[in-house]
Each structure stands twice: as structure tokens, then as C-alpha cells.
Design a protein around this nucleic acid. Sequence first.
DNA 1: ATCCCGAGGG
DNA 2: CCCTCTGGAT
Length: 215
Amino acid sequence: MDSLEPVRRVEIIDRLRAAYPGSAKELCALKFESPFQLLIATILSAQCTDERVNAATPKLFQEFPTPQDMSLANREDLESLIYSTGFYKNKAKNIIDMTNVLVSEYGGRVPDTMEELSGLPGVGRKTANVVLSVAFSKPGLPVDTHVLRLSLRLGLTKEKDPVKVERDLMSWMPEAEAGGFSLRLILHGRQVCSARKPKCDQCVLEDLCPSSTLA
DNA sequence: ATCCCGAGGG
DNA sequence: CCCTCTGGAT
């Protein structure tokens, strides 16, 4: 391990914050007005763009404002409301099962710990970390496909398992930075460091990146 | 064809 | 570790 590596990490964090300023809540592209709405929106975001989730959720939350309402939803009605987000059968079943647990185990409230959140039906570690960091401003580093790809390209990890990547990054990440760092990597991954053709000539991290395609 | 802020089951 | 679930944009 290079003795300058900690300096490089801090520089990466700082440059991303300068390029994509704002809090985790402000950087989150999903529209929500409560932890419950963010939880549902994040479940719907699996293999689906945020814009399509945002197109579906207003009507969904209007029909079913509370966990109680959603737990009692007719399955077909729910499926038709979330159809365009894909995986609609799984998602509808998970949402009904999950909201039933919210009502029966948590008094209709969304819990705010990793253990409780990731124990909910259809809520994995990535979704739990989104809710923790964005809705509750707690330490949490969601590792999605972008965070995984950029972390590998930047040489911040050698792991390919999202859980191991999260552990790698959190071993040195300031806890207050984790959520924002994840959102910024996602934005940077979409706009600059894309999967197919990364725009290294437009990248603010170019001189810090071992995968740069530039001279 | 490939990708999008995944999770559960085998 | 692998597979499956899925529509929509590019």
C-alpha cells in the first residue's frame, strides 16, 4: 500500500464533492417526502431508471399514502401502478409483504437500522443503505453497479462483490461522507465514467485514476 | 444487444 | 456462485 494512497482518497472525495455539491438528500434523484416513500421508490428502482420510478410514484403514493394502505392493496392494482418499472410481480409482492411487516412489527414506521431494514422482505443491503444515508442521514454506502464499476476503475477496491466493496470503502471512508460519496459516484458514472465509453478527457479525477485512457 | 441506484432462491 | 425476474431507453 502506497503511503500516498490516503491522500489520493481524500482528493477523490474532495473533487467529487466540488463537482457534485449538496447533501445526500439533495443529490438523490428519487422523489420522496418521507422515509417510507424513499423505501418504496428505492425498491422500485431495481434495474430501472430513476426517471421512470419518479413517473410512477406520484400516483402510487396518492392511491396508497401509508404503509397500512399499501399493505391492504389489491395485488393487481399495485402491479398495474408499478408495471413500467419492471420486475413488477416481484416488486408488488415484496411491497405488500414488506408493508405488512412495517405494520405488524414496526407500528407502521420505517426502522432506521441496517439489521431491521435489511430484514424486511424485498429489502437488501443496497436499499437499506439508501434509506439509512438519504432518509435518516446515517452512515451508509449503497453499492450499485456504478459505485462498483467506478471503485474498481479508481483502484479503490479489488473486490467484485458489492458487500466486500462496501466494507473496503467504509474501512477508510469518513462516516459522514459515505452517503454523499455513493450518490456522487453514481452521478459521475452516468455523466462521465460510463460503462461503455468513459469520457476520461472530461473527468475531474483523470490524473488520480489508474484506469485513465489518456496519455 | 446492452444498460438501468437489486433481491431472493437454488 | 448461479439463475430468475421485467419494461423501457438507447
